[in-house]
């Protein structure tokens, strides 16, 4: 028998959740609804006249080749960031799981990058890779490779991917390490006795057993790369050269606040909003249930 405690109805619970509700309404619901409304408007560049145009902004985006290429670029960027940061975190966690002495020190150090603000992470990489004064271009120059991400779009893309991935490694590492440490030791010992070496144990036992974490991180990293890398891109490349690092989020900013196309920018952010809602649904539907093996 479950015992249930009943409280008389009162205003207290409403009062207690009120601050959270007010914050959500003011900072999330209201701006979001404004964005939706804005996306139905076309404004002239001086903000003197406004016209209600229904879905014209969306129709324009649909036919805009710049927007479509930004979409593809963002997908590539997200996939690359997720793959790079997750695989690197997996390797680090694999090693950190094996060490006994000084494990806490390693863990603490490996978590630090997560505390760095995106724009600062961007600034770090900006200096390291600056074609004039950076250390990496200097080294690359010695082996005869010419680095200039201000001119070379692929190099610029590589740089923002690297910076974005580096910052996310710490987060992924933490989750992977926790997942690995929750695997009973006797299972890996049994595999060792069965004759599996460290690499084989990792591939056939550990990796399959942490697959729920991998899936969870995949969604988290995709969300991160889609929405939270604005600071890095803004600091490192400003979307350039020639839009080669303009992702969807960056394009929202660029079209709205630089190009002053408020309606088009709002329409883009509505599309992003739909995407993030979709990702959240995926996360809740599948991750809360946990991947079954």
């Amino acid at each position: 028998m479950l015992k249930r405690v009943h409280f008389p109805a009162s205003y207290l619970p409403y009062l207690l959740v009120a601050p959270q509700v007010i914050i959500t309404v003011i900072f999330f619901i209201w701006p979001a609804s404004q964005a939706v409304y804005q996306s139905f408007l076309i404004e002239d560049a001086f903000g003197l006249s406004t016209e209600f145009v229904w879905f014209e902004n969306f129709e324009y985006l649909w036919g805009d080749s710049h927007y479509r290429s930004a979409f593809g670029r963002t997908l590539f960027f997200s996939a690359a960031v997720a793959f790079l940061s997750m695989s690197f975190a997996l390797i680090l966690a694999g090693f950190a799981d094996r060490i006994v002495r000084g494990a806490t020190a390693y863990r603490t150090l490996l978590i630090w990058p997560y505390a760095v603000a995106p724009v600062l992470a961007g600034a770090l990489f900006l200096f390291m890779f600056n074609p004039t004064i950076g250390i990496f271009p200097y080294v690359l120059d010695m082996i005869g490779y010419d680095w200039n991400h201000y001119l070379n779009g692929s190099q610029a893309m590589f740089l923002v991917i690297l910076a974005a991935a580096w910052k996310q490694v710490a987060y992924n590492f933490l989750f992977y390490l926790a997942a690995m440490q929750s695997i009973p030791k006797s299972i890996t010992e049994a595999a060792a006795i069965d004759g599996a070496g460290p690499i084989r144990r990792f591939a056939t036992i550990i990796f399959p057993l942490i697959s729920p974490t991998t899936f969870f991180l995949l969604v988290i990293n995709a969300t991160y790369a889609f929405f939270e890398t604005f600071g890095i891109i803004h600091a490192v490349t400003q979307g350039g050269p020639a839009n080669s690092t303009t992702t969807l989020v960056y394009k929202v900013f660029n079209d709205g606040f630089v190009g002053l196309d408020l309606g088009g920018s709002a329409a883009q952010s509505v599309i992003l909003m739909i995407l993030v809602i979709g990702m959240t649904v995926i996360q809740f539907r599948f991750i809360e249930k946990r991947v079954q093996y």
């Binding site: 006797s186 299972i187 010992e189 049994a190 006795i193 036992i205 093996y293």
Partner: peptide, 30 residues
């Protein structure tokens, strides 16, 4: 010698079966 090279088999208190493998795969792993 590594455990694998000692030609031993061990049964653990918590059985230590590989949870993502079928019984057949568990037995065939080694």
């Amino acid at each position: 010698l590594e455990p694998a090279d000692r030609d031993i088999a061990m049964v653990f208190q918590n059985y230590a079966l590989y949870p993502h493998m079928s019984v057949r795969q568990n037995m065939a792993y080694g």
